[in-house]
Write a protein that binds this DNA or RNA. Sequence first.
DNA 1: GCTGAAATTGAAGAACTTTGCAAGTGTACT
DNA 2: AGTACACTTGCAAAGTTCTTCAATTTCAGC
Lengths: 126, 126
Amino acid sequence: MDGLEGSPVGVQVPLYQAKAEFFRMLGHPVRIRVLELLADGPTPVRQLLAAIEVEPSNLSQQLAVLRRSGIVTATRDGSTVVYALAGGDVAELMRAARRILTEMLTGREELLAELREAEASSALPQ
Amino acid sequence: MDGLEGSPVGVQVPLYQAKAEFFRMLGHPVRIRVLELLADGPTPVRQLLAAIEVEPSNLSQQLAVLRRSGIVTATRDGSTVVYALAGGDVAELMRAARRILTEMLTGREELLAELREAEASSALPQ
DNA sequence: GCTGAAATTGAAGAACTTTGCAAGTGTACT
DNA sequence: AGTACACTTGCAAAGTTCTTCAATTTCAGC
């Protein structure tokens, strides 16, 4: 876990490792849903909890991961805590991901259609 | 691992889970480097191996993850195997990630500067 | 057919992440 | 002060992923 935040300022982490940590931090269904909800504006935990089927303590852990990575901020307002995206076009990233994902799944269906039609043998790995 | 490929055709996985699996598949330094190398065109394993400091069998494992997810394809040419991006603008995704990453790190430095200046107490979580 | 090089696979153990529960902190209300 | 609510934290068990080793497959050249 913990990726980005662990690095003291000035200690250089190779960029490809920072990227890997960034993507790993995105790699959890609850965290994805939180980011998508936050894309529509700052949201109190209570509301996230209502929208996502998950135990409060589990949500808190996932929020902690997002917070530590720096992609979201938390501010306390009375007894509720409000989360918001720290900046950046997270929505754009999600769009890019969706495009690739769609393409990948489409490619897959085409491949399967081909395979269904001609039960031929070929010489490719796997 | 295995995410996307495990799903029989027609069994619907919630989109946020497919996204999480997709990002998790990107979440490894060796896999990121492979994708970045492949962004410059199809590349034989031998060349990947020369460019990335990693054991052959470890690289193979990571290539298998990428292959199973469908983001790359492998074709055999004589005794060498050549990998290529399966489609999609992976480069665009990486650019989006880099933008956010940069912003996050910049935000962090600003925050730290602020903290250094005024050692004030506040009431935020963490 | 052997031998060697290129790449993959399988399996075992270490390392990491996720989950849920119980306990803790902070704020608001009476 | 005491109770209730909103969240967070610590921790152990369960689950997943990573790394490495040895074994295997596939092809090319002899």
